Computed example of a mutant assay.
Amino acid sequence: MSGYDNNPFAEPSSDNPFNDPSVTQVTNSSIEPVDQYNPFPVPSTDSLASHTTPASTSPYQPAVLQPSTEPSPQATAAAAQANLLRQQEELERKAAELDRREREIQSRASTGKENNWPPLPKNFPIKPCFYQDFSEEIPSEYQRVCKMMYYLWMFNCVTLFLNLLACLALFTTSQDYGVDFGLSVLWLILFSPCSFICWYRPVYKAFKTDSSFSFFFFFFVFFCQVVIFIIQAVGIPKWGNSGWITSFTIIGTNKAVGAIMIIVAILFTMCAVLSIFLLKMVHSMYRRTGASFQKAQQEFSQGVLTSKTFQTAAASAASSAAQGTFQGNN
């Protein structure tokens, strides 16, 4: 009878395709259908409040104007003023150094320091003629050059003495070379003290007192000394110098004497080279001291007018002229 209880007009379940379990599972699920799916869902405000997205950093930085490197007029004026102040301080320092040296010299003169050059024994009948102290009288920047000039003078004296011995050895070989030996003795006696007084002491005084006149006097005399060194190194025969010409002339006849004269010729050549080198060094320092020819003229005129010898001679000449005029009128 159960077969009669069913609706005869209902569709059989086996004929309905939507009664398939797989279809009914999809239709009864909570998944939204395709036509209602929104690919851009509205985000919840809670997520926006809890999470913030940082701003993206661009690899390109904005252009920034670089400040100008040119100094301003105020900075230029300040630099110029600082330079002037530095130069003024340097001049004041030099002036203070000159005043200090002058006071030391005056104090030395007042205390009566004895001369110490040449260094002679106390019981020697001849006393020292000059006072010389590089550390006391010469500024530190000039001491090296001044000492080199002193060593050059001593080296020249030793060379002149060896030249005398070489000419004596030459004179022993032949009496015809007696003139060379006599002149070598004269050069030793003449050039040793004259070179000390005429060019070494002036350069020593120039460095000590910054005297323009002493510098000019030194340059004139020392240039003549350089010429003499060159002549002595050349060795002109019959001039009393064991130079290169005389040495090569003698070495053919007497090798021993020729060798001695070649050694002396080398020493004369070294004197000439060193003198030229030192002349350039002194001239470069002279240009930095601010000396000039006008200052040399002023120092010379002031030195002559303030000299006691000149004043005495001028007074004597004036009195003699006055007496002559008075006697002539009578």
Rank of each mutant, 00 (worst) to 15 (best):
N7I: 01
P8A: 14
E11H: 08
D15P: 03
P17G: 02
N28G: 11
S30E: 14
I31D: 06
E32I: 12
Q36S: 12
P43H: 04
S44K: 02
D46P: 01
S50E: 11
H51F: 10
T53R: 14
A55N: 07
P62H: 13
L65I: 09
E70V: 02
E70M: 15
S72V: 07
T76M: 14
A80Y: 10
A80H: 08
A82Q: 10
A82K: 07
N83H: 14
L84T: 13
L85A: 12
L85Q: 12
R86S: 09
Q87W: 13
Q87H: 03
K94R: 09
A96D: 06
A96K: 04
R100Y: 14
E102L: 15
Q106M: 12
Q106H: 08
G112R: 10
P118W: 08
P119G: 10
P119T: 03
P121T: 08
P121H: 04
K122T: 06
N123M: 10
I126F: 15
P128W: 01
F130M: 10
F134L: 13
E136H: 13
E136S: 11
I138M: 00
P139E: 04
S140W: 07
M148V: 12
M148I: 08
F155V: 05
F155D: 14
C157W: 03
C157E: 07
C167D: 05
L168Y: 04
F171L: 08
V179E: 03
F181Q: 02
S184C: 02
W187Y: 15
L190P: 01
F191R: 10
S192H: 05
S195C: 11
F196Q: 02
Y200D: 00
Y200N: 00
R201Q: 11
P202F: 10
Y204I: 01
A206Q: 02
K208Y: 02
K208S: 06
T209V: 09
S214Q: 13
S214E: 08
F216M: 08
F216W: 10
F218N: 01
F219M: 07
F222D: 07
F223M: 04
C224P: 09
Q225K: 09
V226S: 07
I228A: 14
I228D: 13
I228G: 03
I230L: 12
I231F: 06
Q232Y: 09
G235Q: 03
I236A: 04
K238T: 09
S242F: 02
S242W: 00
G243L: 00
W244Y: 06
S247R: 03
I250L: 05
I250T: 02
I250S: 00
I251K: 03
G252P: 03
G252Q: 03
K255H: 05
G258Y: 00
G258M: 00
I263A: 06
C271N: 15
A272R: 02
L278Q: 01
L278K: 01
L279I: 07
H283M: 14
M285D: 12
R287A: 08
A291D: 05
A291R: 07
A291Q: 04
A296F: 02
Q297H: 13
Q298I: 11
S301V: 14
Q302D: 12
Q302I: 00
G303F: 06
S307C: 10
K308P: 04
K308H: 13
T309W: 11
T312A: 12
A314H: 05
S316R: 06
S316D: 15
S320E: 15
A322M: 05
N329M: 09
